[in-house]
């Protein structure tokens, strides 16, 4: 499988990375180079193999339902590029 320029543009948009036109072809070549190389995985027979879920045996621990966190508005907003009245401001979204 190899990707074409349109796919590269689509993937870049899905990933929200602006890709100037002149970068599309180089990126396409780089991706295809890598994809060609990982292609060899297809030759492995995995018919009855389960995908890995936990690499080291472990079980999911459950928290108690207690309020132990929050009320740290200052910390939450401390690094915000554009804090406004306790909110994070972003360019206006029209729904």
């Amino acid at each position: 499988m190899s990707v074409d320029a349109d796919t590269v543009r689509k993937i870049a948009h899905l990933a929200r990375i602006k890709l100037p036109d002149e970068r599309v072809e180089p990126m396409m070549n780089e991706l295809n180079n890598i994809l060609d190389w990982v292609e060899q995985l297809r030759e492995v027979d995995t018919a009855d193999v389960e995908p890995t879920t936990a690499v080291i045996a472990n079980r999911l621990r459950w928290r108690e339902d207690e309020v132990t966190d929050g009320n740290v508005q200052e910390k939450v907003l401390a690094n915000a590029p554009k804090p406004l009245h306790g909110f994070f401001a972003v360019p206006k979204v029209i729904e």
């Binding site: 621990r61 459950w62 928290r63 339902d65 132990t68 966190d69 929050g70």
Partner: peptide, 30 residues
């Protein structure tokens, strides 16, 4: 572990996990 009450001041019922700070991790509420 942040609270879920309705109608609080903005961004007060938010932990660093909820704000997706780098390196923050989820632990499930039983």
């Amino acid at each position: 572990g942040a609270a879920t009450d309705f109608g609080a001041e903005p961004n007060t019922q938010v932990s660093l996990v909820d704000a997706a700070m780098p390196g923050m991790l989820p632990v499930i509420n039983g």
